[in-house]
Amino acid sequence: MRVVIAEDSVLLREGLARLLGEYGHHVVAGLGDATGVLAAVAEAEPDLVIVDVRMPPTHTDEGLRAAVELRARRPGTPVLVLSQYVEERYATELLEMGTVGVGYLLKERVADVRDFVEAAQRVASGGTALDPEVVSQLLVRSRRRAPLESLTPREREVLALMAEGLSNVAIADRLVVSGGAVEKHISNIFSKLDLAPSEAEHRRVLAVLRFLGSG
């Protein structure tokens, strides 16, 4: 996997490069701000772009704007946005352009190196990786509360993990249950929420996010 990183903290940029290197991935360009992202992507044609939201010069959301622009100019380029905090509008802005190859994670998630690398790989291969906090905001703020309240606590857990973008296997792994049990929960959720079942993971994420009112 060839990766472009835009992150203003040298410490984290180098840390990320080392981390990805550890798993056999290659950082082809490391940028200190958002201005050169498009050019770097055009030149390197990476499999994944990792962008920090808050970067110089204004330290607000130039990273996110660069990500949105990149997705508009080069649809389908997998982008993983790292943010210091969860901002619904950031997530929504990003997801509105499609859930294929999109990730939005809190920066501190890089501490769980294996989960983080898995999320990065998922995004690079066209999947979705949403931070659990994003999902919980979406769950809390969803206007369609009645059907959500009909879910069992375990089903809600599974729904949250689906929304994060995890596959059945990963969900089973996370909850320490069998794959069959996960499939059963998922089919229950789809029938309770009146969603069309789907095998493809990203379509499943899309359905869940649409249901929750984002994307």
Partner: peptide, 8 residues
């Protein structure tokens, strides 16, 4: 974060 990442 960097420390946690290295420890990870």
């Amino acid at each position: 974060v960097s420390v946690a990442m290295n420890l990870g």
